[in-house]
């Protein structure tokens, strides 16, 4: 069930869109009407307030992927869309996770130090921390913390930019 988003069948698309009402619905609609699922999605304004950048990962390949990218490009509000090649891009994702501390606070703190995560909130029997890294590394930390008992977890979905060497 837990397919890693790093596996090759996932594709990362980055779209620059107008920062306007309804744009996300138009983009999402092109996937839903074909029965495609969007695995992760991150949207926020760019340095230019008129535009937002959407990063999404999808489980589509070949002609359907090509087709959906072309259709997205046709949307009037989409300024630009590219598929990022994982070998030539940098991806990051942020995770907030609340874990039961119970008897094992010390072991937990070791992991926190190990991963250089931040403790955001410390309760009597649980602790909330944040960490940002490559999505695959987040999976790894998630698995390490699972045995302690995950109370709540929220990941942002990945954001990505092309790397500078190419």
């Amino acid at each position: 069930m837990n397919v890693s988003p790093a596996s090759p069948r996932w594709h990362t698309l980055v779209a620059t869109v107008e920062n306007k009402p309804g744009v996300l619905a138009r983009v999402a609609g092109l996937f839903s009407r074909r029965g495609f699922n969007i695995h992760s999605l991150a949207v926020a304004p760019t340095n230019d307030e008129r535009f937002s950048r959407i990063t999404f990962t999808v489980d589509i390949e070949g002609t359907p992927l090509d087709q959906v990218v072309k259709q997205l490009d046709k949307l009037i509000n989409v300024v630009d869309i590219t598929e990022l090649n994982p070998a030539h891009s940098v991806e990051r994702e942020l995770m907030l996770i609340t874990v039961e501390t119970g008897e094992s606070r010390k072991e937990l703190m070791e992991i926190v130090d190990d991963y250089r995560a931040y403790v955001l909130s410390d309760g009597d029997d649980s602790m909330m921390m944040s960490w940002s890294a490559r999505p695959a590394r987040l999976d790894e930390l998630e698995e390490r913390l699972r045995p302690f008992g995950i109370v709540e977890l929220q990941r942002t979905g990945r954001v990505a930019l092309p790397s500078l060497d190419d």
Binding site: T63, D66, Q67, K70, Q71, D73, K74
Partner: peptide, 8 residues
């Protein structure tokens, strides 16, 4: 004229 038609 519509690039999405090419190869569809």
């Amino acid at each position: 004229i519509d690039p999405a038609e090419l190869g569809k």
